[in-house]
């Protein structure tokens, strides 16, 4: 690990605008610092600034940026009113990691692309302009939506996929004041600058994530991975489905493991709304979703896997 200076922030104001890398749970950052993929020269420890609670706001819940993933998933209100979020968090990592990982840090976790994490390979995310060895390389885990000639990496997390389906918002503060943005707009597609994972500007800090009032419905998070536990998603599907008078009245969907951000496709939701649930309808929606997908070779299997996963989730959520 390269040398760095360390300091401790005692309030959010110390962290907003700081010219330092912020460390919270550290489960991703320290891992990447050991690999010398991340090379911060200054670390600012934000574990003592508060922001670790859940508060009730405007009918919804505000999750502090320093709230541990384990505490979020164990919260009675989250379990009762946002089971999708609890399920997604519990599907990720290990209990030890969830005890440290935070709401804000989890949103900022970096890709698990093997080339990004291995020095001596070309990676535009790690070293802009160097190229991408994943495109013609080992790309079994890589994206099928929204890729660019510069980067085919995925955002690896689960929690954010549920937050995308829930249409949560992210509160951010910086030296020039605060702003709130939809979670669906927090992560970026790689475009020609894959070094930027999200829209945070230098000196900005996430202070909270706000969940809208509970929406009810059947909430399902299905994660498909290489082993039964403690593995990243090959694909995942987050769904909130409600049915009124025999027709689908709510279809909020998001997909993980398939893009540089939690993938959201309003066309697929529109195809389901107002319709009578049936296997034919589910197949039509899933076909619409994967029509825009493009494999990279080793990850071609993700396209039929995602199609079948969505169909299975819709069947589970509607009981059809």
């Amino acid at each position: 690990m390269r040398a760095f200076s360390y300091d401790r922030a005692s309030a959010v104001a110390d962290a907003a605008g700081a010219e330092a890398r912020l460390i919270a749970g550290g489960t991703n950052l320290l891992d990447l610092m050991k690999l010398e993929v991340e090379l911060p020269t200054r670390l600012l420890d934000i574990n003592h600034v508060g922001l670790d609670q859940i508060t009730e706001v405007e009918g919804g819940l505000r999750l502090g940026a320093l709230l541990r993933n384990a505490d979020c998933a164990a919260d009675q209100r989250v379990r009762r009113d946002y089971p999708l979020l609890a399920r997604a968090i519990l599907a990720g990592a290990s209990p030890q990691l969830r005890n440290r990982a935070t709401t804000g840090g989890n949103l900022c976790q970096r890709t698990r692309c093997g080339y990004f994490m291995r020095l001596g390979t070309r990676c535009n995310k790690r070293e802009p302009g160097s190229g991408c060895d994943a495109i013609d390389g080992s790309n079994r885990e890589h994206a099928i939506f929204g890729v660019s000639p510069a980067c085919i990496a995925t955002y690896p997390g689960d929690m954010a996929v549920a937050l995308a389906a829930l249409d949560a918002s992210v509160e951010i503060t910086g030296s020039r004041g605060g702003r709130s943005i939809p979670l669906r707009g927090f992560h970026r597609l790689p475009g020609d600058d894959p070094s930027r994972d999200n829209v945070l500007e230098p000196g900005e800090i996430i202070t909270s994530v706000t969940l809208p009032p509970p929406v009810g419905g059947r909430q399902v998070y299905r994660k498909v991975r290489d082993r039964a536990s403690f593995a990243f998603a090959l694909v995942s599907v987050a769904a909130i489905i409600d049915i009124q008078s025999g027709r689908i009245s709510r279809a909020d969907l998001a997909f993980g493991g398939v893009a540089h951000k939690p993938w959201h496709d309003p066309e697929v939701e529109q195809a389901l709304l107002g319709e009578v649930p049936s296997p034919v309808l589910f197949a039509r929606a899933a076909d619409l979703l994967v029509a825009k997908a493009k494999g990279q070779g080793e990850n071609d299997f993700k396209i039929p896997l995602l199609r079948r996963s969505l169909i299975a989730v819709l069947a589970e959520a509607t009981g059809v």
Binding site: G26, L30, Q96, L97, N99
Partner: peptide, 21 residues
């Protein structure tokens, strides 16, 4: 998980946190 210790009642990986933290 070989480095698991209990910090403030919670199990964590002691390899992924700094002593100064």
């Amino acid at each position: 998980g070989a480095c698991t210790v209990i910090v403030d009642g919670r199990r964590i990986n002691s390899c992924l946190t700094l002593a100064v933290m």
